[in-house]
Amino acid sequence: MAQLEQFTTSVGSVDAVVSRMRALDAALPARDGVAVFNRVYLAVTQEVERRLAAGQFTDPRAAAALDVRFAERYLAAVDAATEDRRPPACWRPLLQLRRHPGVRPLQFALAGINAHIGHDLALAVVDACHTLGCEPADLEDEFDRVGELLVALEERIREDLMPGPDLLQLADPLTHLLGSWSLERARDATWSTARALWALRRFEDVAEEFTERLDAAVGLAGRMLLTPLPD
């Protein structure tokens, strides 16, 4: 993965995040599983950037901080794979199966969303609270607005990447597999997780164990979403 090495610098603004994602998009083969997710996430981040510029967030500074801290966790996972370091368990299924011919683009996209929402977003809320010196409740409006963007985008992803109407039968393995996961439910669980992690911040050993178990559980769900399917 030497072609990614030039994109391992740290990020610090929404514009820098967008630039890194565009660079990844240009560097990776279109069918690569990370590239599939990256295109999805780039679209979300560009929309956040547009809404920030249009003044559509109640607290632009908080929204930007949450967006950047959120993106940093995805980009750090890509960096870890690039540098042959061990990425978080939630990202390992996508990074390991990114070129598997039996996994369809829609699976790659949703597996990335699962890792990013189910694990990274809760930790990003805590990161942003530390950055801004605030409580999770102070970020709830921004969390909800970003979440609404993601839910709307998930619907579009399913429409764009589903193989075709002939495969939308209930007996189809892809339909069955994807029907078992919901971004909206994952987002709701993430908010509760973020609040719990914030409450545990003074109990480092408990918070670390909680985070490790969350990471493993989200990784297991990702592995199931990436089950190779017959043609």
Rank of each mutant, 00 (worst) to 15 (best):
L75K: 00
R51S: 04
A128K: 05
D67K: 10
P60G: 04
E5M: 14
R86K: 12
D59V: 13
L220I: 09
Q56A: 10
P163L: 13
G102W: 03
A137L: 10
V34K: 08
H176V: 08
A115T: 07
V218E: 05
S192F: 15
R202D: 08
H119Y: 13
L28A: 03
N114A: 12
D205I: 07
V126H: 02
W191K: 13
G55A: 02
F57K: 12
E83R: 14
F7M: 10
D79Y: 07
V151R: 00
F37H: 15
C129M: 04
H176L: 11
F7Q: 04
D59I: 08
A137R: 11
A26C: 06
G147R: 00
E155I: 07
Q56E: 15
R50C: 03
R213I: 00
A53E: 10
E49V: 01
A23F: 05
D79M: 06
R20I: 08
R223P: 00
S19G: 13
R201I: 06
H119V: 02
G33I: 02
F143P: 05
L167W: 11
L94M: 08
E140S: 12
R187P: 04
P165F: 09
F37R: 09
P88S: 09
T8A: 13
R104T: 11
E5F: 15
Q169C: 09
R20Y: 08
A65W: 00
A124W: 01
V44A: 06
A53P: 06
E49P: 00
L4F: 04
A199R: 11
P105T: 11
L52D: 00
A26I: 07
R50S: 07
L123G: 00
R61Q: 11
